[in-house]
Design a protein around this nucleic acid. Structure first.
Lengths: 132, 132
DNA sequence: GCTTGGCGGTCTACATACGAGACCATATCC
DNA sequence: GGATATGGTCTCGTATGTAGACCGCCAAGC
């Protein structure tokens, strides 16, 4: 019973026994998105209002175009944001949160709260550990 | 006012204007831990009871000793788990969740719930996107 | 005509993260 | 002596993440 490796089920309700196929474990899937460096930042930047490519880059500040493009693609692929192209003279591209993307902000806020509450403890633990 | 790049504050309450120093942004810090491949798996494996090194490796299933060691070190450094060595003949080492580590399981559960609820939508969006 | 600058990206190069497996010292079992 | 188990470290090669230069298009300035 407990013989099936955790890696296959990843504390989700996925079937056991199978090799760790992609898409098998919800949490793993979601984390591989959320865990990326810029994902959350972009979601937050879009929370208030839709933004265009360059506006996003300016808002985030230190992200390269390459990473911005890639992260936006990933988010779009997962249905978290929408991408709309306006055929203006210099073509404008606007990105906006979808309902799915907006719904993700709630659990993320929970994580953010935890982070803010316990960040001091983490930093203290780190200092103590490194000081040894 | 909105001139300070988001990257510096990372939607947390960190002071603005400074370069993105490590440890400045709680969320970034926490995510760099949680976003690692094995971190959550190990926290989950330790949720029920403390475990020894080899027991952890067997529980997770497909993790190498190298990654197990490294992830455990990181978790210990951040005060999420404790490490206790028993001077038995073949020395035994037991890992357990600290209070801090245990407190992190709550927000993680929130994320897990969201993942389970919306994983279908994400997979559908992915299929649609890839099918284009 | 020529340059300069913004827009929305792609392409190339490097650093880090990850994975597979050898190796170590000790001790027990057969 | 050989196999097994303990808790690791070390080296190597590969996958992935990240940054920075580059590109074609168009508009404005001169």
């Amino acid at each position: 019973m407990t013989k099936a490796p955790l890696g296959n089920l990843l504390f989700a309700d996925a079937p056991m026994g199978a090799p760790p196929a992609p898409g098998l474990c919800p949490i793993r899937d979601v984390l591989s998105l959320v865990g990326q460096k810029w994902t959350l930042l972009i979601l937050i930047a879009l929370e208030a209002e839709p933004r265009r490519f360059s506006a996003l880059q300016r808002a985030v500040g230190d992200i390269s175009k390459r990473m911005l493009t890639q992260t936006l693609r990933d988010l779009e692929r997962d249905g978290m944001i929408s991408r709309e192209v306006f055929p203006t003279k210099p073509p404008a591209v606007e990105y906006a949160l979808t309902d799915l993307g907006r719904s993700a902000l709630a659990p993320i806020a929970g994580l953010k709260d935890w982070a803010n509450r316990h960040h001091g403890a983490i930093k203290a633990a780190r200092t103590a550990f490194d000081g040894v």
